[in-house]
């Protein structure tokens, strides 16, 4: 293969990474934007989504796509409900104090991880892709499922954007993000908003994981990388900015694909981290963030 097709393959791989990353990071960004909570357990919600997808696909009889569709519906709802409960039982009691919530979500991280180890075990287990159609290009064949992942992520992100900008609930969330006290003075139940936001943020991570698990396998430690990369994306894009998150995910995902293929995956991570450092020094509010909210 010559350079051109290699680059195309690298970009396609990068696009898959970017799509999944954009989903996971948008959840982290939403939670930080509205609640000012740095959710260190975000990667575990992702892992949990993958593990639940494995359980669901093994339990549901019939063709692979049936189990996958059920997983795509069940995992985000279950993970979102768990997150909402964690918000209600832990974060609300801490009054969303920024430092206390970091410590609390670190605790949550280990609890979820150990629970997964106990009930799911230490093995990485594959989930069958819902279909195995291949796109045959002149130079190489490409997994049609990976293209589906990109498409599905785009659809979910578009839906999230429409929900935040066009729906009444989205409006209430944006108002709460700006000024929690004034929102309450107009009758907004901020506790309820926070619970919903934390649940939706976790559900987005779970959706990302269900999409990736036919490519990557489910494992109880798989939450680390998405957490780190989500933080990188969210810092570069600007915390709380959905558009910035998507753009930053594209930058990180595509460059990761290209650099990993032509040089090494380690170099890709080094450069991403360097980019974060540069952004923090020269544009701390992120590329698309607004200074002081």
């Amino acid at each position: 293969m010559s350079f051109g097709p290699f680059l195309l393959l690298a970009l396609m791989e990068g696009l898959v990474t970017a799509a999944v990353l954009a989903l996971a990071a948008s959840g982290l960004s939403l939670v930080f934007g509205v609640m000012r909570v740095v959710n260190v357990a975000h990667g575990e919600f992702y892992m949990l989504g993958a593990v639940i997808a494995w359980f669901v696909t093994t339990l549901v009889p019939g063709p692979a796509w049936a189990g996958f569709l059920v997983a795509l519906a069940v995992a985000p709802v279950a993970v979102g409900a768990l997150a909402a409960a964690a918000d209600r039982l832990v974060l609300r009691r801490l009054d969303y104090d920024p430092e206390a919530t970091i410590v609390a979500t670190i605790g949550l991280l280990y609890m979820i991880q150990q629970a997964a180890l106990s009930f799911y075990g230490p093995d990485a287990r594959p989930v069958a892709a819902p279909f195995d159609w291949r796109l045959q290009l002149p130079w190489f064949g490409y997994s049609g499922y990976k293209l589906f992942v990109v498409l599905a992520a785009a659809v979910v992100l578009l839906a999230l954007w429409l929900f935040m900008t066009r729906s009444k609930v989205g409006l209430v969330m944006r108002a709460t993000q700006v000024d929690r006290d004034v929102a309450q003075a107009f009758g907004i139940d901020v506790d309820l908003v926070y619970m919903a936001v934390f649940g939706i943020g976790a559900a987005l991570a779970a959706v990302a994981a269900v999409l990736i698990v036919p490519i990557q396998q489910a494992h109880y430690l798989m939450g680390h990388d998405p957490l780190l990369l989500s933080f990188i994306v969210v810092i570069i894009g600007g915390l709380g900015s959905l558009r910035g998150t998507v753009v930053a995910a594209l930058v990180i995902g595509l460059s990761d694909g290209v650099i990993s293929m032509f040089f090494s995956p380690t170099l890709a991570k080094i450069l991403a981290t360097l980019l974060v450092a540069l952004v923090l020094v020269f544009r701390p509010q992120g590329l698309f963030g607004v200074r002081d909210r």
């Binding site: 409006l171 944006r174 700006v178 000024d179 004034v182 003075a185 907004i188 139940d189 901020v190 607004v290």
Partner: peptide
């Protein structure tokens, strides 16, 4: 706090405290 305004109380805070990134129409909608 969110149950108070329903009884007929509205507040114009010092320094306005609008929902700055929201539009005029969205502020009124809230």
């Amino acid at each position: 706090a969110h149950r108070v305004p329903g009884h007929g109380l509205a507040w114009v805070p010092q320094g306005r405290r609008l929902f700055g990134p929201l539009t005029v129409a969205e502020n009124l909608e809230i």
